[in-house]
């Protein structure tokens, strides 16, 4: 019959032996029989302890191996994640760089058209014989193209990173 606890059978065997000891009189044969039973139970218990300890140690080793493999996988996963983030950053930067260059180019063309159509005639009226003023204005616009592109690029990158951070925080908060 199944017992109430994992070592119930062994506890019961011990109790039986203790009860035997409490008896005031017993024959030599009874004593021999009880001692034999006790030795057998003890032997079985030692065998069990030996095997359980051995198996337990071995399975602990298996657990340790699994933990080490898991740690290695986590490190590899973290490396891959870093590489992925780096690639995503590079792609985002390239995309934003192209967008910034387009915006600055459109602004430069618009400024050129505005300067040709509206500002140039005014300058010609104000300085009739000095073409250098008009040329200087165009030169200023040309010089401002590169810093303008850098500024736009930085601004858009900052905005994109803020957006990325917000999204990652949102997805982190939504995890169960």
């Amino acid at each position: 019959m199944a017992k109430q606890s994992i070592y119930q059978s062994e506890i019961e065997n011990l109790e039986e032996s203790k009860n035997f000891l409490k008896k005031s009189d017993y024959s030599k044969l009874e004593l021999q029989m009880e001692f034999k039973k006790l030795v057998e139970n003890y032997e079985e218990l030692i065998d069990q302890v030996k095997i359980i300890t051995k198996i337990s140690d071995r399975l602990q080793k298996k657990l340790n191996k699994t933990n080490i493999a898991l740690e290695d996988s986590n490190i590899k996963l973290a490396d891959l994640n870093d590489q992925l983030n780096e690639t995503i950053d590079q792609l985002t930067e390239a995309k934003i760089g192209r967008k910034a260059a387009t915006i600055v180019m459109i602004v430069a063309i618009a400024l050129f058209i505005v300067s040709e159509a509206f500002i140039e005639p005014i300058i010609d009226n104000m300085f009739p014989n000095n073409f250098l003023v008009g040329l200087g204005l165009k030169l200023v616009v040309a010089i401002l193209i590169k810093p303008g592109e850098d500024f736009t690029n930085k601004y858009m990158l900052k905005k994109a990173r803020k957006e990325q951070l917000r999204e990652s925080q949102l997805s982190h908060n939504n995890k169960p």
Partner: peptide
Amino acid sequence: EYFNTSSSKYIL
């Protein structure tokens, strides 16, 4: 796949 110490006693 894996079992704990008390399970090893029950397997016995």
